[in-house]
Design a binder for these strands. Structure first.
Lengths: 202, 202
DNA sequence: AAAATACGTTACCAATGGTAACGTATGAAT
DNA sequence: ATTCATACGTTACCATTGGTAACGTATTTT
């Protein structure tokens, strides 16, 4: 039957869309231009028109891909590599290494303004949570993995909420990035020390 | 000598400004309208023109007092009362009470968007840090005091960095307000438990 | 009375995110 | 080869909104 045949064809992947296909290089150029401009001037310096010009692309073309500037930024963020995995054999040194790495990334791009801006937009446009939260969770995974290995080594109480433990080290750093002074290496050490004690076995 | 006399007169307070004095009720009306509108629609819903209209005041008059919308918001925030002091005799219950109180405030006004927006503006306009950071420090004082009393009771290692300890409880809550899920009462309990363990004496 | 400042009114401006319309290019299906 | 559907650029917009300028009137000090 024709119906049956159609049913099979629909399951082909990709479903063979009709019409002119999108140029993948356009996506790439837009994302690259976005990241460049953010690196240069932070989120505050990001203008849609500038991205279009640098990518050699028109504004409508951008909006055909992402419904808003914020969606574009999140898409660009998602193409950046996660934190390097660390495994020194000690929870303490693992955490210090991760936090230090995170702080150096945060300095290279003005990450404080970027994250704060995304938090703002997340309030106004609920659909952003669907895209942004997984990104945040993914970035947290490095911390969670470090804690998991510590559990396996017996350094950590196995009943601990590891996701919460990750927030316990990332949260204060973020708080200080947003308001009040930054986080110097000594503070990192103290913070890690406290976090470790907060979940060590009794 | 005239010069000496002038020198003395300059030290009078106030220095008796000439010209029509500002109407204090105008300040009051503007601040009140700002807080109302924030309570209704969050920072996202705050329009300078709306504040002016509700306060029965002109836009130029607002800008004569505060150089930007963000300065106005911070000024309005500064008129809000700090967290109630709590003193239950136990660090654990004190912290739970404070955090719970903070979370209820955060829900009444859409505080997440407000704080995130201020963090964004703080990046762009460095002078805001001078006004915003003291406000944040002040709000942290309630936590620090709770820790101080715990030190006096011997519940806390006296070598602890109490300001950092405060960040340890406030940071994760803020992180969850900005991204990912909120903070339910059970999470508050777990968080406090971890914080307490992180600074208890050995 | 003069000088100085506050305030309202009105009218702006610049920046910027986002769209509409239309013509041309490019691919798939028939 | 023709048709259909979509991508893309160009151009021209629009609405919103934070912030100012100019000017006349009201208030206060000196």
């Amino acid at each position: 039957m024709v119906a049956a045949k159609k049913g099979l064809e629909v399951r082909k992947s990709p479903p063979s869309p009709v019409g002119r296909p999108r140029d993948p290089e356009v996506d790439q150029a837009i994302i690259a231009a976005t990241l460049e401009i953010i690196a240069e001037g932070g989120y505050e310096g990001l203008r849609v028109a500038d991205v279009a010009k640098r990518a050699g692309v028109s504004k409508p073309t951008m909006y055909r891909r992402w419904p808003s500037k914020t969606d574009l930024v999140i898409a660009a963020l998602q193409t950046t590599p996660p934190l390097d995995r660390v495994d020194t054999g000690s929870l303490r040194t693992d955490l210090v290494a991760l936090l230090t790495q995170f702080l150096s990334v945060a300095e290279s791009a003005p990450l404080a303004g970027l994250l704060a801006a995304l938090a703002v937009e997340r309030q106004r446009m609920p659909h952003l949570a669907d895209v942004l939260d997984p990104f945040v969770v993914e970035r947290n995974r490095a911390f969670v993995q470090v804690f998991q290995r510590a559990v396996a080594r017996g350094e950590v109480d196995p009943d601990s909420d590891l996701s919460l433990a990750a927030s316990l080290v990332a949260g204060p750093v973020l708080l200080r990035m947003f308001f009040g002074g930054g986080t110097d290496p000594e503070t990192v050490e103290r913070l890690v020390e406290m976090a470790v004690r907060s979940i060590e076995p009794r």
